[in-house]
Amino acid sequence: MSTIKFDRVTKRFAVRADSRSRGTKAAFTALSEVDLTIRSGEFLVLVGPSGCGKSTLLDLVGGLSRPSSGQVLVDGVPVTGPGLDRGIVFQQYALLPWRTALGNIEFGLEAKRVPRSERRARAREYLDLVGLTGFERHYPHELSGGMKQRVAIARSLAYDPAVLLMDEPFAALDAQTREALQDELLRIWAKTRKTVLFITHSIEEAIYLGQRVAIMTSRPGRIKAIVDTPPVEELGGDPRSAPEFVRHRHLVWELLHDEVARAQEAERRGTEPREREATPQDPVPAVAGHDVAAGGSDFPEAGAGALSGGNVSFRKKVSSVGSHR
């Protein structure tokens, strides 16, 4: 259990000014003076228009990049690099394909240098926690998307980070699996009481999961508003259609609406580089010889929005996602 505090965090990327004049670099501001505090044990969901810097924010907490100015503090200590006190769950699972489900969970434990004898037992325990008992020996390619994400969540939980960072973890899943995993996540959160920072494109998911929902502005991203949401258990049998739920969804939708319109307008004008992903990687997490690409933060919502009727998909189009090299 830990607090996360963004203290006037600004993040700029150097990009080529335009394609004709090579070499001239321009700074482009992804995040501007972000102030946000996530309480210990809180489940906070971050929503915002495409390209507003949500994933950048998450990378900063993860220690995968550093702010240009300001500080990110976890339990009052500035983040200077990655660490096992924070676990990241990516949209595209990031499982090692040559390791079994159990082996993948053990991977995090190896990173933490847990003794071999203990690893197996602990990996099994967390596989049970995410409801995958019996799939120990399955390789990722033998698992469905939902199962893969369960393994990824188990991997992040197993090394017992105080903070769980989730970058659109359910965006690539179909609507049914998505709802099942949302419930699963709430159950696990209630059990483990981690501090969770969760990014999503779906307003409904945000209201359903979060205790609070933080809405970001279009780029340069700032926190526009924070909305307290009603606890799911108070919403009755079909929480998503409870009046309170609908009212909150509409509230968040309104807060987002202008920002989305502005983001799209900026995209259409094309005056500035659009996506964070289109920018050269900042040097901090770069592994020799590898560009550490942003973890696919802009993935076309694979029909999930359209399928779950009431889901307001505020991202109307997925235009020219940045180049992954």
Partner: peptide, 23 residues
Amino acid sequence: GVRNVDPLLIKSARSMGLSSPRL
């Protein structure tokens, strides 16, 4: 083979604080 490793796997391993040799 070495250069075309899925960058996401590298990012994920990095996020767990793996050093370069162990990565």
